[in-house]
Simulated scan of single mutants.
Amino acid sequence: MNPTGAARTAVGPALLEDFSLEMTGKDVPKLEEARDSIPRGTRINVTFLGNEDLEMRLAAARAVKRLGFVPVPHISARRLGSRADFERFLAGLHADGTSDDVFLVGGDPASPEGPFADSLSLIDTGLLREYGVRHVGITGYPEGHPTIDGTVLWTALRDKHAALAAQPLEAGVITQFGFDADPVLRWVEEVRDRGIDVPIRVGVPGPAGVRRLMSYAARFGVGTSASVVKKYGLSLTNLMGTAGPDRFLRDLAAAHDPARHGDLKIHFYTFGGLKATCDWAARFRKESLA
């Protein structure tokens, strides 16, 4: 007997339809390997890392499109050295037919490498529509950010939402991953209360080693109290083990109320494990619908 059958039944159709994935520019061989495990038309975000160059980023977006998926290239504001660098990237995407969807991030550098301090400054250039961008993803932080005050985060989300609506460009939010569904849903409710009604993709870590998950969580300020990690299914005494987001997704599905939370979907942070994540999602969805 399955005591969580109701929640399992809700997970598949409510949240695991049309999930999205994340990869780096170096992950093209892994994408090739995983292609048969990924549903056609899946949105795949391509990160914008400091150790990758323009051609690598463009080539990764082309590979995503060639393999039958929807490329969502990231653009890191603080990593752009100039307005010309921004235009070169957009022009390259447009020429390749991969500019429809982009995802804007502030980026890791503490100081901007050029004129763009944040995602809003990219939106305000007006260049996105000029180069064929139709949909823009922006970030959400249900548990805050390790170096940015909460008030600043809310102001930034409001301002980006307003700027995109004014252009107009379609918008969506992808959240940082977490281990506890409760703060995610509280944050989503507040987003809706603030009048931001765009689709939200909840960030979820794909199956990965416990040590790796904890390392990423520490880097991004994700809550890892003993009670939270136990709730997720992590074992702090077995850092060599692996964990998947089974419990998190069941908790999210059980508490998701479309009337309060609106349109929610899932975005998997794969940590390089594209095939493992997609194989896991297929198994989990099958079990949820059983």
Score class of each variant (00 low, 15 high):
Ala217Cys: 10
Val202Glu: 02
Gln176Asp: 02
Arg158Phe: 02
Val191His: 01
His161Trp: 02
Ala163Ser: 15
Pro205Val: 14
Thr155Val: 14
Gly209Cys: 04
Val204Asp: 01
Leu153Pro: 13
Pro205His: 14
Met214Ala: 08
Gly195Asp: 11
Ala165Glu: 11
Ala163Glu: 12
Leu185Trp: 09
Trp154Lys: 09
Leu164Pro: 12
Ile200Lys: 01
Val188His: 04
Trp154Pro: 04
Val204Phe: 13
Val202Tyr: 00
Ala162Cys: 01
Val152Ile: 15
Ala208Gly: 05
Arg212Lys: 08
Gly203His: 11
Trp187Phe: 12
Thr147Pro: 00
Arg201Thr: 02
Val202Asp: 01
Asp182Asn: 07
Gln167Arg: 09
Ala217Gly: 04
Thr155Arg: 15
Asp149Tyr: 06
Asp159Asn: 15
Val204Ala: 06
Asp149Gly: 13
Thr151Gln: 09
Arg219Glu: 03
Leu185Ala: 07
Ser215His: 00
Leu185Ile: 14
Ile200Ser: 05
Pro146Asp: 04
Trp154Asp: 11
Met214Cys: 09
Val210Ala: 05
Leu153Tyr: 06
Asp182Val: 07
Val191Asp: 03
Arg212Leu: 09
Tyr216Asn: 03
Arg194Tyr: 10
Val202Thr: 02
Ala217Glu: 10
Pro146His: 14
Ile148Ala: 05
Pro168Trp: 04
Ile148Tyr: 01
Gly209Ile: 15
Ala166Asp: 14
Tyr216Lys: 05
Ser215Gln: 02
Gly150Cys: 10
Arg158Glu: 06
Pro199Trp: 01
Val210Glu: 04
Glu170Ala: 13
Arg201Ile: 03
Pro183Met: 01
Ala181Arg: 12
Ala163Met: 06
Leu164Gly: 11
Arg192Asp: 11
Arg211Gln: 11
Ala217Pro: 06
Ala166Asn: 14
Phe177Val: 02
Asp180Arg: 08
Tyr216Gln: 03
Ala156Asp: 10
Phe179Leu: 13
Ala163Val: 14
Leu157Pro: 00
Phe177Tyr: 11
Ala171Asp: 00
Leu164Gln: 11
Lys160Met: 12
Arg194Trp: 10
Gly150Pro: 09
Leu164Lys: 05
Ile148Leu: 12
Ile148Arg: 15
Pro168Leu: 04
Ala208Gln: 12
Thr151Phe: 07
Ile200Gly: 08
Leu185Gln: 06
Gln167Ile: 11
Asp182Ser: 07
Val173Lys: 02
Trp187Ala: 09
Asp182Glu: 14
Gly178Asp: 01
Ala208Lys: 13
Asp193Ala: 12
Pro207Glu: 07
Ala165Ile: 02
Val210Thr: 15
Val198Phe: 05
Ala217Ser: 11
Gly206Val: 00
Gly178Gln: 03
Pro146Lys: 15
Gly206Asn: 00
Leu164Met: 14
Thr175Cys: 08
Pro207Thr: 15
Glu170Tyr: 02
Val210Leu: 03
Pro207Gly: 10
Thr175Asn: 08
Ile148Cys: 05
Ala165Met: 08
Ala171Pro: 00
Ala165Leu: 10
Ala217Lys: 07
Phe179Ile: 09
Asp149Phe: 06
Thr147Asn: 05
Glu170Pro: 04
Leu157Arg: 00
Asp149Arg: 15
Leu185Ser: 06
Val188Gln: 06
Ile196His: 07
Ala171Trp: 00
Arg212Cys: 04
Ala165Arg: 15
Pro183Ser: 06
Gly206Met: 00
Leu153Glu: 07
Asp180Tyr: 12
Ala156Tyr: 01
